[in-house]
Design a protein around this nucleic acid. Sequence first.
RNA 1: GCCGGAGUGGUGGAAUGGCAUACACGUUCGUCUUAAAAACGAAUGCCCGAAAGGGAUUGUGGGUUCGAAUCCCACCUUCGGCACCA
Length: 866
Amino acid sequence: MLLIESSAELEQSQQRFSIHSLTKSYALARTDDDWRARATARLNEFFHEARVSDLRLPEIEAKWQQRWETDELNVVSEGSDRPKWYALAMITYPSAHHLHIGHWYSYAPADAHARFMRMRGYNVLFPFGFDSFGLPSENHALLSGIHPQVSTMQNIDRMRQQVRAMGGSFDWTREIVCSDPSYYRWTQWIFLLMWTRGLAYKMMAPANWCAGCNRTLANEQVLDGRCERCGTEVTRSELEQWYFRVGAYADELLDFSKVEWPEKVIQMQRNWIGRTEGVELTLEAEDGSPIPVFTTRADLVYGATFVVLAPEHPLVDKLCAPARREEVQAYAERARNTSEIERASAQRDVTGVSIGAHAINPFNGERLPVWVADYILPTYGSGAALGVPGHDQRDFDFAKEFDLPTVTVVTPPGWQGGAMDYAYTGPGMMVNSGPFDGTPSREAIEKIIAFGEARGFAKPAVHYRLRDWLISRQRYWGAPIPIVYCPIHAEQSVPEDELPVVLPEDVEFASTGESPLRRHAGFLNARCPTCGGPATRDTDTMDTFVDSSWYFLRHVSPNDDQGPWDRGAAKHWLPVDQYMGGAEHAILHLLYARFMVKALRDAGVLAIDEPFTRLFSQGLITAGGAKLRKSTSQAIVPDEYVSRFGADVLRAYLMFLGPWEQGGEWTDNGVTGLLRFARPIWAMVQESGVRLDEPVGPFADGWPSSELRQLTHRTIASVTQSFDRFRFNLAVAALMSYVRELAQLAGDVRDTAAWREAVRTLLLLVAPVMPHLAEECWATLGGAYSIHAQRWPEANESLVAVNSVVVVVQVDGKIRDRLSLPVDADQETVLAQATASRRVTRLLEGRRVAQTIYVPGRVLNFVTAE
RNA sequence: GCCGGAGUGGUGGAAUGGCAUACACGUUCGUCUUAAAAACGAAUGCCCGAAAGGGAUUGUGGGUUCGAAUCCCACCUUCGGCACCA
């Protein structure tokens, strides 16, 4: 007989329990028909009672919400000696007039997890904030005439109420509102710090302009050539704008060794940063001007037959032959005016113009014609590229269109030396490459770089797709950029003690969308901090992503007026231990926040490297297949469900829908199932006869006590593990099974210690999911207030351990019987029982058993010959 | 085109090398009711069968293994990210 697992592995496998095996073992061992029938009859009666008991969750919820608030139950204590846990759900944008089901989907599980961590003994900081600057409020003001300040604060009030009604255990004393001067004062302070350190700079550059919103956009805010907010085609316009030098941190931003994030998010950030290693070659134009070109394929340099510059390239003008000037300028003009979306959609249309100049390939001295073409982007690399039509499809198409020669320098498989009808991009042997002929192309890359480096026309170079973060917005409702312009002293920062630069309230919104700051004399006119003479303020405000890239730092000391955060508090609380939020912020917000933290660290005002140690990226909830976005306000209003079923039921339902990271489709089909879960808990508690202020007492041996205790402790293990892994759906499922089994057992175990333990445990395990119901039941049974301040139950390992197993008997891999055996049954016993099975012997009759496989505690497989 | 995730009953989902379909929703029948609703109970993935029982089954096709939803290869579908990026 072949024993698959060693005994050490067996031991391990017995201790290690999967959620599935626990679920399976829920079924009580006692299953004789007689007992089952009686239990069922009792159950019937009991659930009938449950109906009568008339659980009124909305009333209970209001009561406890009030009490928790009065008692400041959720206010975190600074002096605790418990380990700290900073849990944070992504800051909310209060553009909608109310919370929709998507907000609930984000906050309910986050809240449950924070509650779980509190009960596990952590001192949990769990604050809430509003990312309240931004375009929608301003656009709303244009239509309604209501000042953004007013509408924003109204929205915030409403949302605050709703979050409370949800039973969120947020610490409201640490709330922040980004549009409050006490907050944006420090946003401005951070801006100036960046400015001082050269990380904020002003530059004239083509910027993404959205005519719909009347503002510039960061690259990250342009989706498929359109504005992420209003869908208007983005055009490029030459503007002087403020940038944050994110690029300076590109390499460090690629280092994820200090975070435990989902691989998917890390991958997306890597893509976005887009680091490419290559080599920069310097070609020389015939007039002596150096033309740097970037390439990742140094092995192809001998295959270059032309050079292409971006239409915007500064050398175009200088090198252009007089005869071609007119045509080239027209082409460049056209390219500039072509929006991104057109440039992308005109996919295979190859366009370009020769500028009538030549550059020398330093490797072989060949004269290469110089062209401009819009497939070369001014912002990537040096804005110039070698055209290698033999080995690059775009170059190939280009050469074909304009009759430029093609040279093969890397042999394709089976190449006979003829002309190719496509570009070969794979590896091969070097040919037509002077001294490098016969070298495998992969090796040639390094050799050619070394060759060029030794002669001074090549140097290794790294390029990034990531570009600096454009933060200027030509709008009113944002944090003003604290810079003034003096005719004598030019750009000057507003002195720290004059911060914040406050947004004037008496403004008129122009229907054009032009920022009212530009025409507000009181705001515009300032004084030069150096000479005291008249100066003009910068009228741009900062991108709202600036506000949200540091708010988690402010939460540690939200009312500090000496600095953006208190050093001691920051040292204690940071970084955020568990960050939770939508996958749609995987790039923008998370990347900016990481950049900000690194920049602040290097400025010496912060001592952490990463803002968020753990990240949970939750999925989107959809309705009718469409995204529930704040912009498409076809929102489902949760308040209705709250008043009908109770917040606890809605919370539990959202957690039960499926894995949190996957998101899901909203339907109200299954809500009643969760009501059917809540009601028996309530009814059972009423009938339980348990007093929580009395000791549990000594446990009895034997049925039903020991059975019930096993059930209880396996449930503890399973629910705990599920919370740890953010599998809220499984936690709820385990609790549903537990309730059912308890109801069946109730009649047999009343007045036993095991029963008292079970009821107590049930309430504790339910508390994170249905905090109000749990608190109410806890109080009903005389438990010490509050259940949410109790310790999470510990699973007793010896009760969790499985003591009897079902061994599956297979014949040729097909299951033919199941044997119920003690967990320590030896092989002989198992084999004897298996061979005694009629179903097995029948199949083995007349066949020879060639091999017997036994996996202890799991499976016995008879493999027959022929 | 490149990178990554996903595909399991009528539906949401569970199981990550060893009992496929836990837990729910829905459906059918039943209890209660004058009736309906609600509530509760029983049955319920598919095919054959009155039943006992048997068979096929985790997007498709192949492979590895005593054993595959799970690992490998190819393909299909779908979602997300990147994309004239040199």
